[in-house]
Amino acid sequence: MALTFDRHRRLRSSAAMRSLVRENHVRVEDLIYPIFVVEGSNIKEEIPSMPGVYHFSLDRLNEEIDEVAALGIQSVLVFGVPEHKDACGSEAYNDDAVTQRAIRQIKERHPELVVIADTCLCQYTDHGHCGVLRDGDVVNDESLTLLAKTAVSQAKAGADIIAPSNMMDGFVAAIRAALDEAGFTHVPIMSYAVKYASSFYGPFRDAAHSAPKSGDRKAYQMDPANAREGLREAASDVAEGADFLMVKPGLAFMDMVLRLRESFHLPIVVYNVSAEYSMVKAAAANGWIDEERIVMETMVGFKRAGADLIITYHAKDVAKWLAR
């Protein structure tokens, strides 16, 4: 008696067949590369917890930007790390601060690049929190005023997209209103809509010098146990005028990428964050994994979950692999 069953392997029989029926693809256009700029001169210093990722002073920044552009990567996310920090993060909205100067420099050298400005206060405040600190608490509405000033300053410098990562209530509405009033109605907002209070940010805090001096960020970033809350956060940002929605971190929260993809029609961004990157680099350095295959599976996983764009420190490597 002949058995009757499905022959799924027919579509896996060769590399050409597998390519023919492949459902999701990673393109170099999907990648956003984060860059860290610092004050000083002749600085290109590797971040110890993030192998292959560097701090660049402005006089060394062009070499990195030139490589990014040559690889076909079309977008960068700029993080500035100032020398001067104070309680209100005044360097965040200083038109001549390191972040704003970096944005201007990138746009002058490679105007075709889409420059995204991270809009937060944590790396600019002396206490390391993402807003104004009063009696140990981050106060929401005062923080919105400073975040709106920061967004306008970044847009004046030439930022193509404002990406607020602070998780204050109403941050999209405040920034949208400020941008519009300043004449930047054309500048979109990439909201860190679903940002968890995660342990996966550790190496980034080394890179941005932004670890809180006291307490933690659990009162304003989301509980990693919650999913429905993320949908509420995203819905608020959409109503307030967000143009992109982001999930951060990526790997442990791919379910949220899928939930946002199924619930909203805006472009969905996923942030493949620092510890996700550093764990792969450490395992690869020990010979435990095939780095390229692991990274590319991760990128495809983000796309399969529904991400349109991927912020990743692997971007340069991925671009080189895709070009082969």
Results as ranks from 00 to 15, higher is better:
1 M>P: 11
1 M>Y: 10
18 R>F: 08
20 L>P: 02
23 E>A: 15
25 H>V: 08
25 H>G: 13
31 L>E: 13
39 E>K: 10
43 I>T: 12
56 F>C: 12
56 F>A: 15
56 F>R: 11
57 S>H: 13
59 D>K: 01
61 L>S: 08
62 N>D: 15
64 E>H: 13
65 I>P: 03
66 D>A: 04
67 E>M: 03
68 V>F: 02
69 A>C: 08
71 L>V: 05
72 G>F: 03
72 G>Q: 04
76 V>E: 14
77 L>V: 04
79 F>S: 01
88 C>M: 10
96 D>V: 01
99 T>F: 03
101 R>Q: 07
101 R>D: 05
109 R>N: 07
115 V>R: 07
116 I>G: 03
118 D>Q: 08
121 L>H: 06
123 Q>H: 04
123 Q>T: 06
125 T>M: 04
130 C>K: 01
135 D>T: 00
137 D>V: 06
154 Q>S: 15
164 P>Y: 07
165 S>Y: 08
170 G>P: 11
175 I>N: 15
178 A>N: 15
178 A>V: 12
186 H>A: 13
186 H>N: 08
197 A>Y: 00
198 S>F: 02
199 S>A: 14
208 A>S: 15
210 S>Y: 00
212 P>G: 04
213 K>W: 06
225 A>Y: 00
226 N>R: 08
232 R>Q: 10
236 S>W: 12
241 G>R: 01
242 A>C: 14
242 A>L: 13
243 D>Q: 07
253 F>W: 11
275 A>Q: 09
275 A>Y: 04
276 E>I: 01
280 V>W: 07
287 G>Y: 03
291 E>V: 02
291 E>I: 03
292 E>H: 06
293 R>P: 01
295 V>D: 15
300 V>K: 01
301 G>Y: 00
304 R>E: 13
307 A>V: 12
310 I>R: 00
313 Y>E: 11
318 V>D: 12
320 K>R: 10
